[in-house]
Design a protein around this nucleic acid. Sequence first.
DNA 1: GTTCCACGCGTTTTT
DNA 2: CGCGTGGAAC
Length: 748
Amino acid sequence: MQNLLDLLNPEQIAAVTLPSQSALILAGAGSGKTRVLTTRIAWLMKTGQIAPDGVLAVTFTNKAAREVVSRVNSLIPFDAHSMWIGTFHGLCHRLLRTHYRDAALPPSFHILDVPAQLSLIKRLLKRHGIHEEHYPPRDILHHINRAKEKGLRAGDEAGSDDYSRGLSEVYALYEAQCQREGAVDFAELLLRSYELLSRNQPLRTHYQTRFRHILVDEFQDTNDLQYRWLRLIAESGAAIFAVGDDDQSIYAFRGANVGNMFAFQQDFRVQHIIRLEQNYRSHGNILSAANELIAHNSNRLGKNLYTDAALGEPVRVMALASDWEEAQYLVEEVRQLARDGIALRDMAILYRANAQSRVIEHAFFGANIPYRVHGGLRFFERVEIRHAMAYLQLMDNPHNDSAFLRVVNFPSRGIGLRSIEQLQACAQQHDVSLYAAIPLLPGRPGKALQAFFSLIEEMRAALHTLPLPRVVEEVIGQSALKAHYQSEKGGADRVENLAQLSGAAALFLAEENIPQDTPALFVARAQAESAPASGVPGEGVSDTYSVEVSPLAAFLTHASLESGEGQAVEGEDALQMMTVHSAKGLEFSVVFITGLEEGLFPHENSAGEEKGLEEERRLMYVAITRARHRLYLSYAQTRSLHGSMRYHIRSRFLGELPASAMQWSKKSNDNAVAYQPSQSASLPVQQAAALPHAEWRIGETVRHPKFGEGVIVRLEGWGSNNPSAHIHFGRQGTKQLDLTVAKLEHAG
DNA sequence: GTTCCACGCGTTTTT
DNA sequence: CGCGTGGAAC
């Protein structure tokens, strides 16, 4: 027990060992927030206050959830499946799968992502003769999502004017269609499970009794519905351990409500507020820049970071003539840093908007410096993957109209608009899915349509015998997707991605501990009828998950809930480029914050009102606190944006930083003297040897002389720094192999 | 039924 | 400037 707390400071220990009451932990940037959260869970278990299945821990991203699982596991080994650790959406999904009947959902319900939502809305508008100019699909989508986040169903949310009545009508149509198709969108996952628990008393009591401790990460990012969901589960006296930082609230634009932190203190009569203010990440000058900036915000819960670290270097501010010169400047600095031995992956270039990355990428591409842009198109968002996934969705449930429409004529097989309109009319008339309507068509279905029907039928027949990765291969082959992209001019990448999809499926099976040769439609019923936990009220409630879910269905869910950022090519040592938003939660030795200009950062759309400006300032605060040792701030006088040239003055945020911590320079046009990149001798050097094993890919199948074939689940270490691979060898389990020693071959 | 060009639009984003 | 959508021509 003692050793659990050994590495913590007094405030952290106080937080970890709080009594079983609701508490608010105000955790500043770099103050060891995740460590406190995970140690709290381990401490609760170690002191016998709770069993693993009594813990509910909620995060916002899958990455954060995995981090919590693995860190708790390293503190105190437990059965990862017994504990409910996940994202709000993931946990709600689990709830709905387990109790789909009570939630009035079909067993095969599927998740609707944003593009699918939009296409559904467009279809409805067309069918009901509503013009998109009057009701833009994006606005409708926004309306529906916001309504659901407020807990409102169609009709409850109608305003008094014609327009909002119209919105409400479309909302009603949308709800009905989703119910018919068995489609559940992201907000619906939350709302549905909220309603399920609030209406079903035995179920509610069951979970309220089960979860005595609820831990919430990034509490400042919760929206109203998530907060109500938490309140409902904690209603009968569970303790909520809320960890958050109001100064890092940067998602108000998508419904996050920092006000929940204030509401939480009152609603739960919070007696313990603990501030974690010691920062373990940044040098002193960087930290005082952050502190002084954020002090310009009113409406804070109040917090001031301090550090034991030295002042370090001053924060460098650079003025440049144009965005192009800014990019050149970045290249020169990065080059120098790399020469001095700083690993590229330990440097990040941050910007406010994605559009800014173009010039910068161009410069680094020209300079031949490897870089990685985060937050671009993720694996499961690529068109070719979306098409393949639509076929897989039809394999699982051919009555999924959205999936059907996506691929019925892709690759083109001669099924045009006319045939589809006929089919839609027929389906509506008989009140069945498009797929089911094919045999019902008046006269006989066209040859092309009939062929498509047979294609789907045949492929579905194979599901009972073929394992998932093989099904994926069959689908992209037989649907002619692969052939289509092979014959397309720039299609090589797409073919490659399609090939990787079966690797992703294999990887998924490995991670879920499903044997690689399990048929895609095999349903594990072994645990389905297990008895409810003993002595728990809410009798007859079984909360065992994995009920009636096949590998295929599970994979589809995985793809919708997790967009696949992790699958990107890691491994190579590359400079990191991303928006400030996506940098949240990360840290780098060297950080460049670029485009510090009025109109860009703070952004012109937000600078108008105080609330918007304060969020921009928090965004800047997040950006600054990403840096460990060196921070660069830069701005340009001219910038080409949307094709035309714009003139900017420097950001007001630069004026809000402490002069004593800064070092200003400028590189003007009339200065012919070659610019001298800064010396970086004072920075801690981390060896940046090239990774000799970039040839290995996560998800790839490999062969090992002793263990046979396996799937790479994880790659670790760079260059000389113990590069290793975690490989899942079916029944022999997962092994961690040293890549410099292991004799591996590419397989499959 | 398919392909191609013109038009419009352009914070931030996870699930 | 560069993308995605949608209408119009092959």
